[in-house]
Design a protein around this nucleic acid. Sequence first.
DNA 1: CACGTCACG
DNA 2: ACGTACGTGACGTGG
Length: 887
Amino acid sequence: MEKWMLIDGNSIAYRAFFAMPPLTNSAGLHTNAIYGFTTMLLKLLEEEKPTHILVAFDAGKVTFRHEGYTEYKGGREKTPSELSEQFPVLKELIQSFGIAQFELPGYEADDIIGTLTKLADEKEVEAIVVSGDKDMLQLASERVTIALTRKGVSEVDRYQPNEIMEKYGITPQQIIDLKGLMGDTSDNIPGIPGVGEKTALKMLHEFGTVEEVLANTDSLKGKMKEKVEAHQEDARMSKKLATIYREVPLEDKVNEIAYSGYDESQLAAMFRKLEFKSLIERLELPEAGGVGGAATEEAKYEVVPARNLSGDELAAFLAQSESVYFEAIGENPHQAKLIGIAVAGAGGEKIVVITYDELMDPAVAEPVRRWLEDGDAPKRGYDLHKAELALAWIGISLKGTAFDVLLAAYLLDPTESNQTLASLVPRYQLPGLAPDETVYGKGAKFLVPAAEILAGHLAAKAEAIRRLIPLQQADLETGGMHKLYYELEQPLAIVLAGMEKQGIKVNAHTLEDLGSELAQGIARYESDIYAHAGMEFNIGSPKQLGDVLFDKLDLPVIKKTKTGYSTDAEVLEKLEPYHEIVKLILHYRQLSKLQSTYVEGLLKEIRRDTGKIHTYYRQTIAATGRLSSQFPNLQNIPIRLEEGRRIRKAFVPSEPGWTILAADYSQIELRVLAHISGDERLKEAFIQDMDIHTKTAMDVFGVSADQVDSNMRRQAKAVNFGIVYGISDFGLSNNLNISRKEASQFIEQYFEVFQGVRAYMDNIVAQARQDGYVTTLLERRRYLADIKASNFNLRSFAERTAMNTPIQGTAADVIKLAMVRMDEQLRERGLRSRMLLQVHDELVFEVPPEELELMKTLVPEVMENALALDVPLKADVSFGDNWYEAK
DNA sequence: CACGTCACG
DNA sequence: ACGTACGTGACGTGG
């Protein structure tokens, strides 16, 4: 069975270039696009096992598309030299792979590919097209799959006509109509101005083709009708430009694309030139210098069930182990069931697997428990934080954390959302792991497999961890994150687990009383709303609510969502003057949110036996370095509005007579900004401990303190928020409900005064462009894949992220430091007080009466001295009988 | 399971 | 011309 793989060389090289961090070999040649291209190619070779391969390139600058439309692909930025220098080498490399490549003057890569897929359809041969360009979707058919790169080039989404229909509701042939209507800025294809993807799809769903749309302009209305009529020619031409030409004269070149594998020595020579050492190893190619034979061999190890060892043998094995994997089933570690443990011995020659049943057998359990609880016996694993909790609930206290590959992976790339062990190994060219889904199944079909199969799977994971450790340690070192890892994140994981195990007491009665009060209010609003609407409907359904508000009551449409009318609070506030019902809906929403999420939601999380709630802090989710909280989220308990704030009355000390003490950083993000920007005026404001929003108002509006009214302060506050988020006039105008012009004037005035801040914002973006990442004060790193994107939106987003992440991330560093120090202090001083919660800039404790006075000074002292900045840090303390009173 | 909405910093 | 403020998680609806 033939299978053709047709690669759009230019498109993939471009994608790879912008997706990969800068990379050069010692000769100074940029290699990142080549590297990205190669890893993608290797992955696809493995996944697709094609019998024929072709890489097509664009030839020259002028194609037949320029005949009649000279602006085609105009306005496109010149290819950066860092990329163009890579093309000749890339072509050389493809040759070393033994893969055919074509380019033909006057035609683009997609025309060559289009012609070949046509041939594939005719010959009934299976084909896969690899590109980053959505235009290719027009080539999809039953036999032709289009693989589009996603997230850089490491992964692809595969499309056949079915998937295209699902995603866009159109056929592959209609892709060109879509482009004809909406155009394509990157190719300078005009389309019809004002018609974006949504409008274009709507028109196609109704009329089918560009021609039919143009023939039916009568059924359009208003501005849209005018625009479509005025740009008929543009639409027709755009469609033509977007159409891939499928009659390229290729003659019998087809016969040259058969693929029979690569010559190892040729490929190795190429990789050596490019200094792709990891790829040489991964493919087990002959090493440099022809010494030969040094290729890494496939890992071979023996899997031993724990019960086959005597107690002493087991203890001796554990003592010299190099890695451990805990398999805990379930997302919530407080409820997860530990089904097995795999431990890799020295050199990875032997891996011992302990199943849950064996763990219940004292002969096995005792040596294992002694090892797990021995703080001097190092444990190197994956997600030891989760393991620690799962173990705690079966009465085992994990000690001796020495390395965690999940935590390391997070520091090495916090933007990567897939941090499963299986996703980690290919990053280091280690042998692949079976995906959990194939071993266990998913959803309702989840099933723990037979002991043998399970043991094999867990052993493979323990071995993967063992091999990842030195590689990640080297990467942490290279990235300057060694200290961040060992002195902050790893100790913090243990502190967090302690807080989570401790839990916070929540008074169910308080919540239940609040719940019945809410229920009454909800019932009242419900009947009022029905009366005003003249009908009963589900108020909680945005769809039904939209129908009532905008169709039945004819209120003006302020904003639309992908699926219909928007009815969010922002819209409803604008609609308030039009109809009494609107206010009622806002109140109803407020109460039902409190009821379902906070009263009912929290009640479900209270442990029957202890009356406590145990959240789970996730340390490897937020790209900025912040924590997140789950099951339940205790970082979003209401506070801004009094009605919701009362929820906090239910959070109480777990021992009679104790007190809840809360301490929060004052303006930590703006203080961090003052430090990292070095802006003198901003620093001075904090050194003088001024009200920062009032001070900002004074400086921006050029008035004295007593001339600042509440409105000026409010606007200044919004500007300060904007600065922290990575300012844009659009965002500020939206927030303050002012025009973009006014917003942009505010921003300009702000930067006039705080010039150091302006310089910081400019510099950080420039630096991000240069390095591909930004860092916090403690060297936490965040890559910005889109910082060089040609797409304005993507690029702007990345630029704002570049401005925001060092600020938000450094603030996260600071409070994490404070948590580790605070935990030390509680221990060293032998205090009974307990740290319970972290809410980004706030720490919550429960404190026995005799320690209250001490804690009132100790907590802010530790927080304020967590890290020395050029401005003082400030923490405010409060306390009371519950979290509400601690304000 | 995606979406809209809304709670927090 | 483009058209979003930064970072999260939980709930209910409806396909």
